[in-house]
Design a protein around this nucleic acid. Sequence first.
RNA 1: GGCCAGGUGGCGGAGUGGCUACGCAGCGGCCUGCAAAGCCGUGUACACCGGUUCGAAUCCGGUCCUGGCCUCCA
Length: 445
Amino acid sequence: MALALYNSLTHQKEPFRPMRPDAVGIYACGPTVHDFAHIGNARMVVVFDLLVRVLRRAYKQVTYVRNITDVDDKIMDAAKRNGEGIAALTARTSAAFQQHMAALGAQAPDVQPRATEHIPEMIAMIQALIAKGHAYVTQNTVLFDVPFDPHYGQLSRQDRDGIVAGARVDVAAYKRDPTDFVLWKPSTPEQPGWDSPWGRGRPGWHIECSAMAEKYLGVTFDIHGGGQDLIFPHHENEIAQSTCAHDGAPLARTWVHNGFITVRGEKMAKSVGNVVSVSDLLAKHDGETIRLTLLSAHYRQGLDWTDEVIEQSKKALDRWYRAAGDAHAGAPDAQFLAALDDDLNTPQAIARLHGLADAALAGDAGAKAALKASAEVMGVLAKGGEAWFRGDAGGEGAEIEALIAQRAAAKKAKNFAEADRIRAVLDTRKIVLEDSANGTTWRRA
RNA sequence: GGCCAGGUGGCGGAGUGGCUACGCAGCGGCCUGCAAAGCCGUGUACACCGGUUCGAAUCCGGUCCUGGCCUCCA
């Protein structure tokens, strides 16, 4: 079965057909590195990581570009608050981002362009837009002329009147039309800035993605995506800039947007004070558990982040590791792959993994190998069973084995009170014992 | 107000015009010295009201409710 994806541009699920037979270009809007990544950033990363893994199985050459926005007002504010230079801040936060996403099993994109390293490309695109009459200069600011673009609003299905009517922000006086948006704006001497035909300044938010996508993927490419909040205005404006700069050539053929995460039923926001950071989660949970939780709901649905859903994912992984932890990966299961091909239907794919685990636990070696291989396509079950259940702490091992031996002796002597006491002691240390015909093994809870 | 998603059993969460989703929790049992793990069995679901149909939770119309976006946002 071939891959089908829901295209937010057409509002329907479509068979995916790349522009070239063996090569796919995909661009995802990455983080603005003003702070450490939160679980919402992570969902986008994990969803697109999975999409890229699925694409790589089907196409020889997949080019995955995910940008890093390292010039932005929030970054300037954060740097000021921390008494830290902007370069130091973005170096620190983007390094942490790489680390945290790797811990979630996300492979690095092929290209991770930074906005600050592509200023000339942005200036060139802005100049082209001015030359074609799609942008105008006023007060050292360059603005995109929205009413001049008849196709504006096709992605978000908003017309100009609706945008104006719903506006929550005061319209800057220098705009010809309330919907016009900034391509370039002046910087004060203490703000980061670059020389340009319009004076020293910095780019607007949207132009970086248009310029960098063109540089690395060409004028028109296969897939563009990000969180669904980016549909408007960010992606709408990208489409406007790119298509107008490229004489009507579309920016991307398929648009993929992932849903939002709520935290215990509430919107996750700084103002609510419930932002869940990836680094905090990694301190308490294995990256695979977090990854599976992020994939436990379909990517376009909302996902409510609670301790219960994390616990469920942990239990699922325990079971799968028990069923196939040390197996050699075989070929991934066909039903599993079909579920992913169907617009990344991870809940159905996960259901299939449970079925394979049942068969594997019943002694089916083929199911065991298929479980291992299938789960690895999803980016989980990649460790050995030993590593999963016991972790790296080797120093404790000998001591635990000694206690297990003491308990075995007590059991042999029918001294069950002593045997249970030893088990209880280990239990307080979150060590669980499992007796079987072949002896006793231990694992961390 | 405009645009877009949704409302499924105690919870999480797919799907479908007629056939058990799946998982977690619960309950009963097997196994076990007792547990853990594993295994077997087990329950009430498709927001509401109409309509189409042999048959709808699934299609159509209406109602109610929830969430997101409407120039900071993954």
